[in-house]
């Protein structure tokens, strides 16, 4: 009896303690007193940019051992709202800033292209804007309409709020209401996985992620758009039609540490990192 009571009291004391210990650190507490850079930098936002930012952060940390860079994903929208609410120092946004977002400053770090992917066995190799529009709005529902085999098209679309969806809709001048999808998914990897196991499916992903998967033996094919091959090279040359900017964004005057990191991210030293992620560096 006594033991039980003691146990319960112990538990009662332990619970608030755990809550106190697990409460989050304040992200704005960056000390900038000494000459060398030090402190903690928090970067949140686009899951497209996050792996690149992570690699940049590793190099940055090795040059400045007193700096810790924490990269978290959650989408471009999160990057914007976190920067506005000062929950983070730098936001990652995988598109151009909108007119309603002019209170923020964009620092362009790389380019990315979005293209359509199909299974390797699919005989179709290129599509025009009109064909893609017809497929996604349900006017074409069989691959014979596009010179393929007699099979129904499985149209894969992205969930609302994803930046690749915005890029896609913006380029084709479509509203999401007009799209008649068979499957709706979240991120690029899911799209690639579904297309890899369904020879009749079509999806759109960022060229970087698509090329990377293709090089690693995933049976998918990146389609040429209007006769222009979907490759990093063509995105770099700005000849590929569906592209987007990858931006770091800040709100107000960024602190010394944020500025140093952005400068580093835009320097040629990060070009190998950008290429390793299959994005396209901004060569002058």
């Amino acid at each position: 009896m006594k033991k039980n009571v003691l146990f319960l009291i112990g538990l009662a004391l332990l619970v608030p303690l755990v809550i106190i210990l697990s409460s989050e650190e304040n992200p704005t507490s960056v000390s900038q007193t000494s000459k060398a850079l030090q402190g903690k930098l928090i970067i949140t936002g686009s899951s497209t940019i996050a792996p690149l930012a992570q690699e940049m952060a590793k190099q940055f940390e090795s040059s400045y051992p007193n700096v810790r860079v924490d990269v978290q994903t959650g989408g471009s929208s999160r990057g914007i709202s976190d920067v506005r609410r000062s929950l983070t120092h730098i936001g990652m946004v995988s598109r151009q800033l909108k007119a309603s977002e002019q209170d923020l400053t964009a620092h362009k770090i790389a380019m990315d292209g979005v293209t359509l992917i199909v299974h390797q066995q699919n005989p179709v190799t290129q599509l025009t804007d009109d064909q893609i529009r017809a497929m996604y709005t349900g006017k074409f529902s069989n691959w014979t309409d596009l010179g393929g085999t007699d099979n129904p098209i499985t149209v894969i679309n992205k969930a609302e709020g994803r930046s690749t969806l915005e890029v896609f809709l913006g380029y084709f001048g479509l509203k999401n209401q007009q799209i008649k999808p068979d499957i709706v998914i979240g991120d690029n990897e899911q799209a690639i996985k579904l297309v890899a196991q369904n020879p009749h499916a079509i999806a759109y992903v960022s060229i970087g992620t698509g090329e990377y998967s293709q090089q690693h033996g995933v049976p998918i094919k990146l389609l040429a758009i209007n006769g222009i091959a979907a490759s990093s090279h063509n995105v770099n040359q700005a000849t590929f039609p569906i592209t987007r900017e990858l931006n770091f964004i800040t709100h107000g005057i960024p602190n010394k540490l944020s500025l140093a990191f952005i400068e580093f991210a835009q320097s040629p030293a990060t070009f190998p990192l950008i290429k390793a992620q299959s994005f396209v560096p901004l060569t002058p």
Binding site: G74, G75, S76, I80, S81, E160, R162, S163
Partner: peptide, 18 residues
């Protein structure tokens, strides 16, 4: 036919919703 449940909707869209 494909469909979406209320719970999947939250999981799918919450991360990117504003």
């Amino acid at each position: 036919e494909p469909m979406r449940t209320l719970t999947s909707n939250i999981a799918l869209e919450m991360a990117y919703a504003m």
